[in-house]
């Protein structure tokens, strides 16, 4: 199964310094305008094709992330934004940290940066649709 265009995006802020959240929020500005690709940011995960996660996974919100991922319908993709979601950033090894996002849910695209620029985030969401980047795409 593939997603051709106009993915709907759901956003979860797993806690962090909010730098990546601000840059994702800036994508919906008149300056960067994510809606020209047909992308809409939806509140509920059940309406979404792509899940964007920022921030660090700690013990409190680990179960929430799994809960949200299981509510999404197939086909679905996940984008991990920021150094904290990918490896833990500067909080790696602290006692609150529960591992990189990889260990919790399968991730399609990684966006490094502290924080990454909005143009990079938009490109990452569009790359997530490409079948070359997912194992599912290869099967079909």
């Amino acid at each position: 199964m593939t997603i051709k265009k106009s993915p709907w995006v759901s956003f979860y802020n797993a806690g962090g310094c909010n730098g990546c959240t601000l840059e994702f929020l800036a994508c919906t500005n008149p300056k960067f305008d994510i809606t020209r690709f047909g992308i809409e940011v939806k509140a509920s995960a059940k309406h979404a094709d792509v899940l964007v996660v920022t921030g660090i996974v700690n013990k409190h919100n680990r179960k929430r992330i799994i809960n949200i991922y299981e509510q999404m319908a197939e086909p679905k993709r996940v984008v991990a934004v920021g150094a904290c979601a990918i490896t833990g950033g500067i909080y790696r090894g602290s006692q609150a940290h529960a591992g990189p996002l990889d260990n919790v849910i399968p991730v399609t695209v990684y966006v490094p940066g502290c924080p990454p620029r909005p143009e990079t985030i938009i490109k990452a969401i569009l790359e997530a649709l490409d079948d070359k980047n997912t194992k599912q795409g290869k099967k079909d």
Binding site: N58, R64, I90
Partner: peptide, 23 residues
Amino acid sequence: LGYAHRGVEEKMENKEIDTTLHA
């Protein structure tokens, strides 16, 4: 509370002052 909890104060123990400023 506790969802954004990152252990910041714990990370800043026994570090050089410049590293702490960065954190």
